[in-house]
């Protein structure tokens, strides 16, 4: 063990390095830490007469009231977390398996084309997605119902079937997003040294054994880090996706309403700074607790994989 020296000594010793770090630190301080003062808005009654935040009347938790007044907070939290867990698990499973498959394909041209086709939906805007979905499923002229009618069966009104949307939202999320993380996994597979595979081949391992015993374990690092990133945003949901696909259709809210859409709708009529901040604080605190817990668990299991 090296003897502990003071902070000043450390600063002096690596002053060039710290100087190089300074812009980044400032960036985070100004853009991410200073705005946190605004959290105080969640606890005051906003009014135009006070010239600054700290003169406004302190109201305690009153701004948080609207979150549970309609009795939906629990359901919203469950929906938000449920969807996100489904997204994270399915996106990772799907993208890892496709990445492994693609990495085994040697045909360069085919590989590139497949990769691009899978990646492209990532650039489709959610607004366009909503139009596509509406044209597929609307009752009178939708593609699905036109097909059903041609086949002689009854048309179905998907926009009145809340349960179906759990499936649809997840499917469209995957369609749009899995190409992105697949590329990341593919890049990290490319980084695995060929020596392992050659050695395994000589030992007689077949293609499945190689994937299972070499590729997958090597991807663990990337997986853990992507997982932690994703968990940090678990309470944020995917506002655009839900809002665009479901819109104003109240019939579907029981299964498709997440915190973000709920807050958005509430505050469209009463855009109150206090209430808007309160909703944000609730999401952030919840997300913070979640990521600390998961990171803690990972630290316990394997210190190297933890984010911090």
């Amino acid at each position: 063990m090296v003897k502990k020296k003071g902070v000043l000594y450390e600063l002096n010793k690596n002053k060039i390095l710290f100087l190089m770090l300074l812009p980044t630190l400032l960036y985070f301080l100004i853009n991410n830490y200073l705005p946190m003062i605004g959290i105080y808005y969640a606890f005051v009654q906003f009014d135009f007469h006070s010239s600054n935040l700290f003169q406004m009347a302190f109201v305690g938790l009153k701004n948080f009231e609207f979150l549970w007044k309609s009795g939906k907070l629990v359901q919203l939290t469950i929906n938000t977390i449920g969807y996100n867990i489904a997204f994270i698990v399915l996106v990772n499973v799907l993208s890892i398996s496709v990445a492994v498959l693609l990495s085994e394909i040697r045909g360069k041209w085919f590989k590139k084309v497949t990769q691009s086709i899978l990646f492209l939906p990532y650039f489709v805007s959610f607004v366009i997605l909503s139009v596509i979905v509406f044209n597929l499923f609307n009752y009178e002229q939708g593609v699905l119902n036109t097909m059903l009618e041609k086949l002689g069966s009854e048309p179905i009104n998907l926009y009145a079937m809340p349960k179906a949307w759990i499936f649809l939202i997840i499917v469209f999320y995957l369609w749009k997003n899995f190409g992105y993380s697949m590329v990341i996994y593919l890049a990290s597979i490319t980084g695995i040294s060929d020596e392992y595979y050659e050695a395994a081949k000589i030992d007689g391992a077949n293609i499945f054994q190689r994937a299972w015993h070499i590729t997958l374990p090597m991807l663990k690092n990337t997986f853990v880090i992507l997982l932690l990133f994703a968990l940090g945003g678990i309470m944020k949901g995917q506002f655009d996706l839900f809002y665009q696909m479901v819109g104003n259709n109240g019939l579907l809210f029981s299964t498709t309403d997440i915190l973000d859409t709920y807050v958005y709708r509430s505050l469209r009529v009463t855009f109150d700074m206090g209430m808007a901040t309160a909703a944000g604080v609730y999401q952030s605190v919840f997300g913070f607790i979640l990521i600390m817990t998961v990171n803690g668990i990972i630290r316990k299991i394997n210190k190297d994989y933890a984010l911090f």
Binding site: F66, K69, S70, N249, G250, F253, V269, D272, M275
Partner: peptide, 20 residues
């Protein structure tokens, strides 16, 4: 201002149950 929270909550209920 005295029924802000109720107002926001009502908006939700309206969208979910009255609109359909």
């Amino acid at each position: 201002s005295s029924y802000q929270a109720e107002r926001a909550a009502l908006e939700q209920v309206e969208k979910q149950y009255l609109f359909p």
